[in-house]
């Protein structure tokens, strides 16, 4: 299992953010967590970190339904830049949506590793780390 991974959580709901933090801490995987409240903040953060592969996150947990720039908007911009990041970032969509058309749409982005239904719990998170 990969250790000392850095995670970028893109989530607008503060309670979900709080709970995800709790789950990640409980797993004691030595992970580093950064939280951003919408797609635009996350893109700005990635652009700021893109001075070296080491500064970029290993995992992105992305919500879909967010104000300002939603998950789909984030994915569209991320797709354009994915080749210049110089790092294989594992992107997981973490959403309460289970709509088949959302899952189908997510599959169109080759860098999306999986579709995780909320809430994230320790089991789901450990499985995620194992699959890296």
């Amino acid at each position: 299992m990969m250790e000392n991974v850095s995670i970028l959580l893109v989530e607008d709901d503060p309670i979900t953010t709080f709970l995800t933090k709790k789950v990640i801490i409980a797993c004691k995987a030595g992970t580093e967590l950064v939280c951003k409240a919408n797609g635009q903040e996350a893109l700005d953060y990635i652009a700021g970190q893109n001075t070296g592969a080491l500064l970029l996150p290993d995992i992105i947990l992305l919500d879909l339904n967010m104000p300002v720039l939603d998950g789909w908007g984030f994915l569209d911009t991320f797709k354009k830049n994915v080749n210049i990041y110089g790092k294989n970032i594992a992107l997981y969509i973490c959403t309460s949506s289970t709509a088949p058309h959302d899952i189908m749409k997510a599959r169109e982005y080759h860098f999306v590793k999986d579709f995780i239904s909320k809430p994230l719990n320790t089991q789901k998170f450990l499985d995620l780390l194992k699959s890296l």
Partner: peptide, 13 residues
């Protein structure tokens, strides 16, 4: 499915 699942899931957690 979409709107109640989120807060209900949080309550469970």
């Amino acid at each position: 499915a979409h709107n109640l699942r989120g807060p209900l899931g949080n309550i469970t957690s």
